[in-house]
Amino acid sequence: MVGFQRIFFLLAVGLLLLPQAAVAGVMVVVNPRSSVDHLSRDDVINIFMGRFRQLPNGLPASPVDLPVTERAKPEFYRLLVGKDMDQIAAYWSRLVFTGRTAPPMQAGSVEDMIRYLNANPGAVGYMDSNDVDRRVKAVLELK
């Protein structure tokens, strides 16, 4: 009993000491000139998880991932489908095996993503809410 109590105590302390995500929220963004103003969560999931890559305006959707270094990436998948990055990786490893569906394109940085978004009208990305600016259009806020 004493042992369990001690373990619980240590766990609690550990949790408190974890670095709090500085991310206030994750914003799904598209090309500012896109006619798409809003995407549903399911739309975002279909696009990012490779099921149905088409925007409501009929354009083929092209998802873009942040690099793993960006804190917003795991936050995005956590908020979107409730999975950590390992699980996401395991998912893709099975689909990649068949070669039929590809994972989102990997952007080098937030800036890189912004550029790609501006360059591709069908591109869909995401970023920390604090990083959103006029160069992108937010279509869904994930909290």
């Binding site: 099921r51 068949t98 039929r100």
Partner: peptide, 14 residues
């Protein structure tokens, strides 16, 4: 699980 993923992604091969 794998079948579910295949279904989700409509991946006939998988």
């Amino acid at each position: 699980q794998t079948a579910a993923i295949a279904c989700f992604a409509n991946d006939v091969t998988l």
